[in-house]
């Protein structure tokens, strides 16, 4: 998880990815029995009412969450879609049909932001997941104490606010006294105006993302590795498989569900990249580091085109959905 995404997104809690869990976890264990009860009740209004009355305390327990959920999640979700078909005016909005969506697809700004976000995602997600896999494999070879030591070391940056991380990195990329240009100086290269040039700014943000360890990934890979049965390795060793071969043929395939989960999680996170942008580049120079969420923020809260911002976010949602489905399919299928 990369800390600092929109906090109130449910997605940000564990990086947003519990989708993989849903098909498994969400289905009640004793499914048939429950369906029967409700099924029966459904057929008979009086019985349904009786069931509801008998269980009134359950509704009371749910009530606080339901009220909050309705006000601050459910209504806004529906509203977001309605809004995307409106032109927002302070005293009374008007419906404009698909105009906002047409604007989204016609605008260069959105296209550039999408391109930047995709590049960011395509580089940082595989890098993050693979490096987490390699690091946790290495950590797993060590003793208990060193394991927890390194686990903490790699997770610590994850609990730090992205605001802070962005502030330091901005400084590390500083042209005059930044660490990066200093190190480059050893090799007689540079100095480079990392965040100030169109051709390096986005890459500077990508490098930064890659160098923030994917703490969640490491912890989850370690946990999953711990649950792989040792007898599998034992058998492979009997057959004379090398350690590397064992890793390729046993560890990686068995970690696949974890990998899928992590890829989904970090893809969603990566599509929502925002904090670094507003803290470090403001989307510039030009629009070299404009990303989708920063664009939505700007459209909504600097230009106050709420309708257009609504349409942009609906499109973002659809893009994330498509990506998730594709990843789910690809990573699931070749089992």
């Amino acid at each position: 998880m990369k800390a600092g995404y929109a906090s109130r997104t449910p997605a940000s809690l564990l990086g947003g990815g519990n989708m993989t869990q849903m098909p498994m976890g969400a289905v009640p264990k004793k499914k048939d029995e429950k369906l029967k009860v409700i099924g029966k009740a459904k057929g008979n209004p009086r019985k349904l009412f009786y069931e509801m009355k008998r269980n009134y305390s359950a509704y009371l327990f749910l009530l606080p969450k339901l009220i909050l959920f309705t006000l601050f999640v459910a209504i806004p979700v529906v509203w977001a879609f309605v809004l995307s078909f409106q032109k927002y005016k302070i005293f009374g909005s008007e419906f404009v049909g698909f105009e906002n969506y047409i604007k989204v697809f016609e605008s260069d700004a959105f296209r550039i932001a999408l391109k930047n976000t995709l590049l960011f995602t395509v580089v940082t997600v595989p890098f993050g997941v693979i490096s987490a896999l390699v690091l946790s494999t290495l950590i797993f070879e060590l003793g208990k104490l060193s394991q927890s030591l390194f686990r903490s070391a790699f997770y610590l940056p994850t609990v730090t606010s992205m605001v802070i991380i962005a502030m330091v990195w901005r400084w590390m990329y500083n042209y005059d006294f930044g660490l990066f240009n200093y190190v480059l100086g050893w090799f007689g290269v540079g100095p480079v105006n990392w965040l100030g040039q169109s051709n390096t700014a986005l890459w500077a943000l990508i490098i930064m993302q890659c160098l923030i360890p994917f703490g969640v990934g490491i912890i989850m890979y370690l946990a999953s590795m711990g649950s792989i049965s040792q007898s599998l390795y034992e058998a492979a060793r009997m057959d004379g498989a090398s350690r590397f071969k064992q890793w390729i043929h046993i560890t990686i395939p068995l970690l696949k569900p974890t990998t899928l989960y992590l890829v989904l999680l970090s893809t969603i996170g990566s599509f929502q990249v925002f904090t670094q942008i507003i803290m470090m580049t403001g989307g510039g120079p030009g629009s070299a580091t404009e990303t989708l969420v920063h664009l939505i923020y700007k459209t909504g809260f600097r230009d106050f085109e709420f309708g257009l911002a609504g349409a942009q976010s609906v499109v973002l949602f659809v893009i994330i959905l498509i990506f998730s489905v594709i990843q789910f399919r690809v990573l699931r299928h070749d089992e």
């Binding site: 040039q197 169109s198 051709n199 120079p285 030009g286 230009d303």
Partner: peptide, 19 residues
């Protein structure tokens, strides 16, 4: 003006970068 300004200043940044 806010949007016009942004369009101009974004381009100006590129001039100062020599791009």
């Amino acid at each position: 003006w806010r949007k016009i300004d942004e369009a101009i200043q974004n381009e100006l940044q590129l001039v100062f970068n020599g791009e």
